[in-house]
Every structure is written in structure tokens, then in C-alpha cells.
């Protein structure tokens, strides 16, 4: 029984679903099991910072707390083709360099406003930032998907109904 509960606690909850942790105990590896893409602990930490910038913690949990950066990795690993995966990793790897050239420090060390400005520059494909646009597009799409479909949002904020038991085609819009 003890072993069972130990295994259970090792499962990582990302947005409400368990993801298998990495089998590797080697330091410096990503914390979840990935089949196709190679991600190390530093890249994972950087992605967590970017995810937190996209959906930050305020009075409601943010991306890091919901482990949405791990959800992005899972989706990129299983649901994107090689071309996307390559663009994703290249873009992720360029983030610190972009932050340094713009603000003189690595992404994680930038202040919140700088981080958002950088993401805006990337999505507007400004100059060098263009190299990370494909990465950011994937990351943002997946983080929004993961957030809106997270257990937290679907139970605490916008209740998902498994069994509506009704249909009204003339529901007052004011009450919606």
C-alpha cells in the first residue's frame, strides 16, 4: 500500500490530468516522460516562465501552478509534426538570447513588463524576434487550450456540464 501511494504522488497533475513523470532520475532532465522531443530541466523552467507570463497568477492560479507548461510539452510531443516540434524548440531556445539583446538579461530575470513586451514583439514578428513567432504561436494556443480545459477553470470558474438534461433554443441572452 505504501508503495502505491508513493507512485500516486509521483504522478504530475497538469491542468487536472495526470501525466506520467519521467522515468529518468538523471538530473537536468525534463520532469515528464516525452517520446519525441528532447527537453532538459532548464528549457522546462524557461517554458514555465513564458507560460506564466501568458497566463499569470493573480487572484486566480496561473500557468505554473496549473502545470500548463507541462501540458504544452505533452501536446507538442504527441500532437504536432516534426516541423512544428523543431520550430518550437528553436524558438524556445532563442528566448533568452532575445531577452538579453533587448533587455540585457535572461527571460526569467526580466521584469513582468519587459516579458510581456518581448512576447508582443515576437507575435508581431519584429526583427530578430521573428525567429520565435512559430514557437510562441504554438505555446500560446496550447496554453489557452490547457487553461480553458483545466479542471480548475471547468469546475471553479466556468462549470462544465457533463449532463445538461435540457435544451432551450430561446434562452434570454441577458442571463447567459
Amino acid at each position: 500500500m505504501k508503495r502505491r501511494s508513493a507512485i500516486k504522488s509521483l504522478v504530475i497533475i497538469a491542468g487536472g490530468i495526470a501525466i506520467m513523470p519521467s522515468c529518468s532520475t538523471e538530473p537536468g532532465k525534463a520532469s515528464i516522460d516525452l517520446k519525441k522531443i528532447n527537453i532538459n530541466a532548464d528549457q522546462e523552467a524557461l517554458l514555465a516562465e513564458i507560460a506564466e507570463t501568458i497566463i499569470p497568477k493573480n487572484n486566480k492560479p496561473g500557468a505554473k501552478e496549473l502545470n500548463l507548461h507541462l501540458f504544452i510539452l505533452k501536446m507538442v510531443d504527441d500532437c504536432h509534426n516534426e516541423e512544428d516540434q523543431k520550430a518550437f524548440i528553436e524558438g524556445l531556445n532563442s528566448m533568452d538570447k532575445l531577452a538579453k539583446s533587448k533587455y540585457g538579461s535572461a527571460f526569467a530575470a526580466c521584469d513582468p513588463k519587459q516579458k510581456i513586451n518581448l512576447l508582443n514583439a515576437i507575435s508581431k514578428e519584429e526583427g530578430d524576434a521573428k525567429g520565435a513567432t512559430a514557437f510562441l504561436k504554438i505555446a500560446k494556443r496550447r496554453i489557452i487550450q490547457g487553461f480553458m480545459n483545466s479542471k480548475y477553470v471547468m469546475t471553479d470558474l466556468k462549470k462544465y456540464e457533463l449532463v445538461p438534461g435540457r435544451y432551450n433554443g430561446y434562452f434570454p441572452a441577458k442571463q447567459a
Binding site: 490530468i17 505533452k74 509534426n81 471547468m154
Partner: peptide, 17 residues
């Protein structure tokens, strides 16, 4: 049949493999 959307590993998408 009774799974919630966030209980699907890929939120409903079919993995490429």
C-alpha cells in the same frame, strides 16, 4: 463515457502516432 474534458490527456485530440 463519463470522463470530463480535462481527463483526456490530449483534451480530445487524436495523437499523431
Amino acid at each position: 463515457t463519463n470522463k470530463l474534458p480535462y481527463e483526456f490527456e490530449h483534451r480530445g485530440e487524436v495523437p499523431l502516432d
